[in-house]
Design a protein around this nucleic acid. Structure first.
Lengths: 151, 151
DNA sequence: GACATATAGTTAGTTATGCAACTAATATAA
DNA sequence: TTATATTAGTTGCATAACTAACTATATGTC
């Protein structure tokens, strides 16, 4: 028995990730209340494009922790809403570079404000130190599971 | 500016819940490698039935943080695989009580072992104290978002 | 240059999610 | 006791996830 092992009764809530799910749902709700029709998944893609426009689909998938199939559909939907466009790379025609449209650009400010508001709602009465521990542990959990492949 | 506020660059990984998602995916993979055909979502329902059999769909939804529509479909799929059966309550015929079948019962031990194994993989080099902080903070985040309704 | 391999992205199939509108059964209230 | 409201569950619609199989382009080797 590793001394890190969770007791059975505690397993589920960790695996389920219900807290982070609740944060995501709240942000979605805050988007909707503000009249924004984008999903948080779509926002996660826009978020990375606002930081660096013209990424490939694969790179977007890496940065948002999605496989390429999921990335394809997400960008399909973003394209339908005319928030991004795909442009084939001149250097390598296998690659689609994804660019923000003029419709998407002004959404950055309002969605960031709503994300900050959501964070404030989520993190009431939680100290900076605790937040640091959580971020650090979750990152290490992620690294534990992605640094080496299973069998 | 609340002093709990995340800096923008840190927002996404928290909302995305990528660490808990990675744990869930690893557990799913461990199920598959062991020849088990159940999803982690299905397992989350079985998990609560192993603790207390014969719960109503609504109660199962509450315990697994799902709305009633999602619960309905999840139980549809569990019923298709003959892992649970629905029995209308004698007292109130609106209520379906969900019971484990003889096929589901022996899955408890092996899936618990796989869940423990997954936890051990996830929590390598993370101390008990850190785990306590994370559990505590995530619970408080969840409470912050569910204790009161939005507007 | 030709053939095998690797890479980027798409598509098909299945499961799961949320919201909103619906049915059926029960509880409340006039 | 009949009309109204509430509750448990289902269904329709849209988005999103993963796996596996596929296409098209690029690369590497002989």
């Amino acid at each position: 028995m590793s001394n890190n092992q969770f007791k059975r009764g505690e397993l589920y809530s960790v695996i389920n990730g219900m807290a982070t799910t609740a944060v995501a749902r709240r942000l979605q709700k805050n988007f909707r209340n503000a009249g924004l029709e984008i999903t948080i998944e779509q926002w996660s893609v826009l978020y990375h494009l606002w930081k660096e426009d013209g990424l490939s689909q694969l790179e977007l998938g890496n940065r948002t922790f999605r496989d390429k199939a999921s990335t394809t559909r997400l960008i399909d939907n973003l394209e339908k809403q005319e928030l991004v466009t795909r442009v084939a790379s001149k250097d390598d025609r296998r690659i689609n570079l994804v660019y923000l449209t003029d419709i998407a650009k002004p959404l950055q400010q309002i969605t960031y404000e709503l994300a900050n508001k959501t964070m404030n709602e989520s993190l009431q009465n939680i100290s900076k130190e605790e937040i640091e521990v959580v971020k650090n542990v979750l990152q290490r959990v992620y690294d534990n599971l992605t640094s080496k492949d299973l069998i």
